[in-house]
């Protein structure tokens, strides 16, 4: 076996086709094939570090690599909340353009300063589901009890008149079944894997005007990176590019798979119109964006930079 072993940890199920697990596994395979005396050992499903502890372990060099929803570290770097901010991304095409923008430059600077670097970008899309009425324009959420994924969404939805119940995504199903929740807001993948289609009447798919996007890059610890030789670093960079390309190919497919499964189960599927999207953006500017700009030193600059992308 190889001289240098990198330990990669993530919270997603291993070997079951989860796209983030596939990305890490693909990198492990590529690095192995490059024959640079480097091996990536994957610990899926929180079998090493718990989801919330991965960032801290990574930047201290206790963990070499991770596939991490970056917002999980927003308690230590409030800037990261911008990577789970309603309406900042809008579509997969725009996510691609965002990756090379000044906005992501600012985010990646925070990542680098903290002691980590990005090997592959990934923006996952998500939507809304409800068993009350379709969630499109802001007035459709008023009176519904919703579970949102992330504090910024909580704030925006509450401002639009929804009640918020916080719980892990694994509990959405039973909460909907028993009427504690009317609707939920999470990633396309979670909607399918938690069988939410059995409990709802309407799905708002991401489409061209999606509010929900979350940044889940593959990261490496700066300490681990510096311990690699140039050949190994080159192999890892190449593997990261392959993983990123693989993800870009799969991303839209994840949304389509969700739409197919929900339709098969007789769920109505709708999209937001540009008018709906802009109405939500107005509410977000008054709520989540405003709070973010107030609490984060360069918060307003981050939002402006993200919105400036075509």
């Amino acid at each position: 076996s190889a001289e240098t072993v990198l330990r990669a940890s993530h919270q997603f199920p291993g070997g079951k086709g989860d796209v983030r697990d596939e990305m890490v596994q693909l990198m492990a395979k590529e690095v192995n094939a490059a024959d640079v005396d480097l091996e990536i050992q994957v610990y899926p499903g929180q079998s090493l570090f718990k989801a919330g502890e991965q960032w801290g372990a990574l930047v201290r060099g206790r963990l070499d690599m991770t596939a991490l929803p970056l917002d999980y570290a927003s308690g230590r770097h409030p800037e990261f909340s911008a990577t789970l901010m309603p309406g900042l991304v809008r579509s997969h095409d725009r996510a691609q353009r965002l990756n090379d923008s000044e906005f992501m430059g600012m985010i990646k600077k925070v990542i680098n300063d903290a002691g980590a670097r990005v090997l592959a970008d990934a923006w996952l899309a998500g939507g809304f589901a409800s068993n009350d009425r379709c969630i499109t324009s802001p007035d459709t959420v008023s009176g519904q009890t919703l579970r949102a994924a992330g504090p910024a969404f909580d704030e925006m939805l509450a401002t639009a008149g929804a009640s918020i119940a916080s719980m892990p995504s694994s509990e959405i199903y039973t909460a909907m079944q028993t009427g504690v929740l009317d609707g939920a807001n999470t990633s396309s993948g979670s909607f399918v894997s938690y069988r939410i289609y059995e409990q709802v009447t309407c799905l708002t798919a991401p489409g061209e005007n999606a509010l929900w996007f979350m940044y889940e890059p593959i990261l490496i610890s700066e300490q681990s990176w510096n311990n690699l030789n140039e050949e190994q670093q080159a192999a890892l960079t190449a593997a990261g590019e392959k993983a990123e390309a693989y993800f870009a190919k799969e991303a839209a497919g994840l949304d389509q798979k969700m739409i197919d499964v929900f339709k098969e189960n007789g769920v109505e599927v709708v999209n937001m119109t540009p008018e709906d999207y802009n109405a939500w953006l107005d509410i977000a500017k008054k709520s989540a964006y405003k709070t973010f700009a107030e609490n984060v030193p360069n918060g307003q600059a981050l939002i402006d930079a993200a919105l400036a992308v075509e």
Partner: peptide, 14 residues
């Protein structure tokens, strides 16, 4: 010393 918070909706200092 680094003013960590919990990063949740409530987001209290840690």
């Amino acid at each position: 010393s680094m003013d960590w918070t919990t990063g949740t909706a409530w987001n209290p200092v840690l």
